[in-house]
Amino acid sequence: MNTPEKPVPPVNSWTAPYWEAARKGKLIIQKCRDCQKYIFYPRMSCPFCFSDRIEWVQSSGRGTVYTYTIVRNNAPSAFLADMPYVVAVVRLEEGVQMMTNVVGCAPEEVHCDMPVEVIFEKLTEEITLPKFKPVKK
């Protein structure tokens, strides 16, 4: 039986810089030049003040786990090979939250407020995914 592959994020004009940076091992997020708020995920205009004066800035790549789940069951797909795996919302130091995976430790070791830092996993030639691992003490 053919099982679905992992989905590849579609890249468009306003998300392209994000994926280009990820490919180079950098995590960038947006910031509004008018209201100074950080923005994630990538937008064409600021969701807070509707300004289109948005710039890309480098994130520290550090944050904490805000919430998470451990996937132990799934429909047939390429994800089965990864189970059990952690899907998490990570709150970056800049304040924005991003949905991601926590890797590099046993799923049972993950907990809310756990300090994490970004790492990068190559998905295809085009796409590299930012993921997070525990910060070593």
Binding site: P7, Y41, P42, T67, T69, M98, M99
Partner: peptide, 16 residues
């Protein structure tokens, strides 16, 4: 794609 692609209801409520 940045928040919830392929994300199930059990997944969402588990995060809650």
């Amino acid at each position: 794609t940045f928040r919830s692609r392929m994300f199930t209801a059990p997944g969402h409520f588990a995060m809650m």
